[in-house]
């Protein structure tokens, strides 16, 4: 049975990109422990609308932890206190009745706040554009089983490929570095035989774009991996270092 709850919410409100934001305090009624954090915000917004106030803007979509759209800093932790969890998968039963929750947007120079808890993560798309692909036109593909890939190689590549692009790694990193994201992309594609022909250009171009976007660099603090809802290993960052140095020293270009 669901239990009703009282929570005090400190939510970052910011009207637009250039406005100065501040925290507002809310104590919505009708909260129950089987609500997710996002359902709690739905509930709050219903009440704000009924009161003629401006509802909280936050981004979300699939609400099952796969689309990577949602992401809120909850009590100083990206996606809240649980590991391997997106904000939409975090339920109020995780908190105690009477708790205070501080909700803030991802903060990074490369992720400007658009409104309230909504940030602009287009930088990730531009990094992907810089080289996060395998150049194969439709119609070019050889028979699928003509290249054998050991099960463990494919499985390992999959572990990097599960990245949902939510940006929690950037949010949690003390340097707002995107290395976990970039390294997951680079790692996935360089492990697969299909991705090897372009591996050098890929890593050089993606890292160059990452730097241009204004992300910080990695200091091996490993907080990114702890915050990652897909628990992507920091080993991919180390792999990227190896890939990068190899590419930077042997590439023909």
């Amino acid at each position: 049975m669901s239990k009703s709850m009282k929570l005090t919410l400190h939510i970052w409100r910011q009207a637009n990109r250039h406005a100065k934001g501040k925290f507002e305090v809310y104590t919505p009624s009708d909260l129950t422990d089987d609500m997710s954090i996002l359902e709690m915000l739905d509930c709050l917004n219903d009440q704000l609308i009924a009161d003629g106030k401006d509802p909280v803007t936050f981004e979300h979509d699939c609400r099952e932890g796969i689309c990577g759209t949602c992401g809120i800093m909850i009590n100083g932790m990206a996606h809240g206190p649980d590991r391997g969890t997106t904000t939409c998968q975090l339920y109020l039963r995780r908190f105690k009745d009477g708790d205070t929750l501080v909700l803030e947007p991802w903060r990074a120079k490369a992720f400007p706040v658009i409104k309230d808890l909504l940030v602009d993560r287009a930088a990730f798309d531009r990094i992907q554009m810089a080289g996060g692909y395998i150049s194969v036109n439709v119609g070019n593909a050889p028979e699928a089983n003509s290249i054998l890939i050991p099960k463990e190689v494919s499985s390992e590549a999959f572990e990097a490929a599960v990245c949902i692009g939510c940006g929690a790694c950037v949010a949690a990193c003390k340097n707002a570095s995107a290395m976990l994201f970039v390294s997951a992309k680079v790692g996935h594609m360089s492990m697969m035989p299909q991705g090897r022909p372009e591996r050098h250009d890929r890593v050089l171009n993606m890292v160059a774009q990452m730097d241009e976007e204004g992300f910080g660099s990695c200091t091996n603090t490993l907080e990114c991996s702890a915050a990652c809802p897909k628990e992507i290993s920091p080993k991919w960052i180390q792999r990227l270092h190896g890939e990068y140095i190899q590419a930077a020293t042997v590439t023909r270009r």
């Binding site: 692909y133 395998i134 194969v136 439709v138 070019n140 593909a141 050889p142 028979e143 699928a144 290249i147 494919s154 499985s155 590549a157 999959f158 490929a161 996935h188 594609m189 697969m192 299909q194 991705g195």
Partner: peptide, 9 residues
């Protein structure tokens, strides 16, 4: 075939 060529694991 196409998806495998794109590196889908």
């Amino acid at each position: 075939d196409q998806c495998v060529a794109q590196g889908v694991p």
